[in-house]
Amino acid sequence: MAILKTEGLTYTYSAGTPFEKTAVDHVDLCIEENTMIGVIGHTGSGKSTLMQHFNGLLQPTSGKVLLNGQDIWADKSKLREVRFQVGLVFQYPEYQLFEETVAKDIAFGCKNMGLSEEEIKSRVLETANMLGMEKELLERSPFALSGGQKRRAAIAGVMAMRPKILILDEPCAGLDPKGRNLMLRQIRDYQKKTKSTVLLVSHSMEDVAEFTEKLLVMSKAKLFCYEETYQVFRRADELKQLGLRVPQIASVMQTLRKKGYNLPEDLYTVESAKAAVLALLRKGAASC
């Protein structure tokens, strides 16, 4: 079922000045519940501007954003409610930590929602647990944590509000490979557990290939496509023209396919490539 829809969504910065620039141009989207979505696009393609419309940080110049079928700008007094339902985590969210303890920082959003003390406490614990943060950490100052844990604390603050839609802008920027992988697995587990929709804005094709079901691709202020991840990575040549690329392994597999090897189209992780190559090798051995 669709949870978020946009109809002809358009946003123009500095309208009427010489710096006028349309950052989002007639975007029609229909985003489903319970999905893990990757958002990719060249710098300046409009993906961040688009994301900021989903929770009403920006108001469309024209067009609509519908959450559960309701125009979020129809009644401005309800915008606060929209922001509880659509959580947005900016890049480097650890710079936004401010409370005395990690627990208080994670609880901040929930407090604003007017939840009971008990409910807040249980959500803080549950969320910290999902992100692999040990209980002892919760009473520490957030500023005494390591970089990766600080970022988890900041993300947990939004997750604890249990938004129907969670938007994460480059949650793995600056993390090492192991840290990236762990963070992405924890985010995917959160998504599965809460059955919410998670939008993951990323510059890493390898990461979105491994962790998302669908991809939203922006290019030059327009929606280039919104499709299943494997379908998008078939279009390697088009992606390159947009200043994007496909994962290294997908590129190798596609070259082999073009040379006539009988490989499936949807190989974009090392694991699937390995399975397909091994299957081909065994078939070859059997026919000899």
Partner: peptide, 9 residues
């Protein structure tokens, strides 16, 4: 290149 898109990288 940590903060750049594939082309910028």
């Amino acid at each position: 290149t940590a903060m750049l898109d594939p082309q910028g990288r």
